[in-house]
Amino acid sequence: MKTLALILGLLISGIIANAQDAKGITIKVTIENVLSDEGQILAALHTQDTFMKGAGIQSFGAEAKTGSISFTFEDVKPGTYAISTLHDANENQRMDYQDSGMPNENYAMSGNEMIMGPPTFQDVKFEVGNEDLELKLRF
């Protein structure tokens, strides 16, 4: 009887552990240095397949607020990702550029590196493992 109780206990523990693992990871992102209340803040979580090619696998949008803004991406599976953010001041849902090709609106990428030229996935990627993450990005 003790053996049966032990086996059932281990089985139930295994089921509970697997159910918790299936939930995924939470990534909390804080964008610092939002310079105005104009427009909106847009962000997307990308895989290598979606980076700089369109919509990410999860997205965020909210009214801009001077200072900082925080948001989360929920239920993220372990893997390699990148985050892109944009202060879309004129709310046209895209990055605007100067005639020289330089961005006309503030943006930030995971990694926070000052990159000359368009960012690549390799420049801004980060790993999601088995623990929740907190990232700070700066416009």
Score class of each variant (00 low, 15 high):
Met1Arg: 09
Met1Gln: 07
Lys2Ala: 09
Leu4Tyr: 12
Ala5Glu: 10
Ile7Glu: 04
Ile7Asn: 03
Leu8Phe: 12
Leu8Asp: 05
Leu8Ile: 11
Gly9Cys: 08
Gly9Asp: 04
Gly9Trp: 08
Leu11Ser: 14
Leu11Ala: 14
Ile16His: 09
Ala17Asn: 12
Asn18Ile: 08
Ala19His: 11
Asp21Gln: 14
Ile25Ala: 03
Ile25Gln: 07
Ile25Pro: 03
Ile27Pro: 00
Thr30Tyr: 08
Ile31Ala: 05
Glu32Ile: 03
Glu32Phe: 06
Val34Met: 09
Ser36Lys: 11
Gln40Thr: 06
Leu42Phe: 02
Ala44Lys: 00
Ala44Ile: 02
Leu45Met: 06
Thr47Asn: 01
Thr50Tyr: 09
Thr50Cys: 05
Met52Leu: 13
Lys53Met: 09
Gly54Ser: 06
Ile57Phe: 07
Phe60Tyr: 15
Phe60Asn: 11
Gly61Trp: 00
Glu63Lys: 13
Glu63Ile: 09
Lys65Trp: 06
Lys65Tyr: 05
Gly67Ala: 09
Gly67Gln: 10
Phe73Leu: 06
Lys77Cys: 02
Gly79Pro: 12
Thr80Arg: 12
Ala82Asp: 01
Ala82Gly: 07
Leu86His: 05
Asp88Met: 09
Asp88Gly: 05
Gln93Phe: 11
Gln93Ile: 08
Gln93Cys: 02
Arg94Ser: 11
Met95Arg: 00
Asp96Pro: 04
Asp96His: 08
Gln98Leu: 14
Gln98Ile: 01
Gln98Trp: 12
Asp99Arg: 11
Ser100Phe: 01
Ser100Gln: 09
Gly101His: 09
Met102Ala: 14
Pro103Trp: 10
Asn106Arg: 08
Ala108Phe: 08
Ala108Val: 04
Ala108Ile: 02
Ser110Gly: 07
Ile115Ala: 06
Ile115Cys: 07
Met116Lys: 14
Pro118Thr: 09
Pro118Cys: 02
Pro119Val: 06
Phe121Trp: 05
Asp123Arg: 00
Asp123Val: 03
Asp123Ala: 06
Lys125Tyr: 01
Glu127Lys: 14
Gly129Pro: 00
Gly129Thr: 09
Asn130Ile: 07
Leu133Pro: 00
Lys136Asp: 11
Lys136Gly: 02
Arg138Thr: 12
Phe139Lys: 04
Phe139Val: 11
